[in-house]
């Protein structure tokens, strides 16, 4: 039976009184790259922990290739490459020892992928992982995961501790090896702009709000920002904005002289809404957003 790499149904989970997921449902089909996005503490890493069976949820079901998440069979785990937060590795190993140890567990092991990536570091194979920088270690861990030739890759905050060069190297290597429609990737990161050319689908997780699942293209097309410059008329503009339809306004960010309104709707609806506000005496401009602006606009600055 062909099962989706990941299926989440009505997931409930809470830490004490703080509810993390309320009936979260999500299906991740084969061949897609999904980004789990959200501010710190919304439950991205917890979701990965649950999916990989390191934590039991309070309710609902999570399945990985059809296996319940907390009882994933070894055979299924072989199909999943997992990058833990902070590029967790057994750092007492040398480059060579890490490969020798890991390869014994995977029948489709591809040493050339590992050494291809490791060679870029220009380090001797006898170099210990403990003596590497965070960036170098990230390449070792990525090499070990890619060499497993997994069908599903789960990368939890791959960008943590990496400078721009290593982040680019990481993403480029993922693009070259995984964007083939055969591999499914779930990725979380706080550095959103790196993902623009890599991800297909976005999952926005927000505190106390349902998750939004959308394609990157649709999101960038329909998520819009308008800037209204008010200078000394803040009170007036606040009054007018209070009459706005809150269903289409996702977020409002107030600055010293201007306010940014973030809408998630088609442009016709947004323009009608703006007309209702009668803003002809203010400067109103549609603002260009890159993916990071859009992410912050959607989830809020704080």
């Amino acid at each position: 039976m062909n099962c989706h790499p990941i299926e989440i149904e009505n997931l409930f989970h809470s830490y004490g009184k703080r509810e993390l997921y309320h009936s979260l449902s999500l299906t991740i089909p084969k061949g897609k790259v999904y980004a789990l996005l959200g501010k710190n503490g919304v439950g991205k890493t917890s979701l990965i922990q649950i999916l990989m069976g390191f934590m039991r949820p309070n309710g609902g079901e999570c399945r990985v290739f059809g296996d319940p998440a907390h009882t994933i069979r070894p055979k299924t785990r072989e199909r999943v490459g997992l990058l833990f937060e902070r590029h967790l590795a057994y750092d007492f190993f040398t480059i060579e020892q890490a490969e020798k140890f890991t390869r014994s567990f995977y029948k489709n092991w591809k040493s050339d992928l590992y050494y291809g990536l490791v060679d870029k570091l220009g380090l001797p194979y006898s170099h210990r992982i403990a003596n590497m920088s965070e960036g170098q270690r990230s390449q070792i861990v990525l090499g070990l995961i890619l060499a497993q030739d997994p069908e599903l890759l789960i990368l939890d905050d791959y960008s943590m501790g990496l400078d721009a060069g290593y982040r680019r190297l990481f993403i480029d290597y993922l693009c070259e090896n995984l964007k083939d429609g055969e591999h499914t990737v779930v990725i979380t990161s706080h550095v959103i702009q790196d993902m623009q050319n890599f991800v297909d689908e976005l999952v926005f997780m927000r505190k106390d709000k349902p998750a939004l699942v959308t394609s990157l293209d649709t999101f960038m097309e329909e998520f819009t920002c308008y800037t209204i410059v008010f200078k000394n008329n803040e009170g007036d503009i606040r009054k007018r904005l209070s009459h706005m339809n809150s269903e289409i306004v996702v977020n409002t960010e107030w600055h010293k002289d201007y306010v940014q309104l973030f809408f998630y709707a088609s442009s016709d609806i947004i323009l009608k809404e703006l007309q209702k506000l009668d803003l002809h005496d203010f400067s109103v401009q549609k603002s260009y957003m890159d993916i990071e602006d859009a992410f912050i606009g959607y989830t809020g600055r704080y």
């Binding site: 990989m52 390191f54 070894p74 785990r77 967790l88 567990f105």
Partner: peptide
Amino acid sequence: LEEMRDARIRISLHLPCD
């Protein structure tokens, strides 16, 4: 303690074995 540091034991527990 080395395995429990940052829960590194998860690396071993994710290996395709019981």
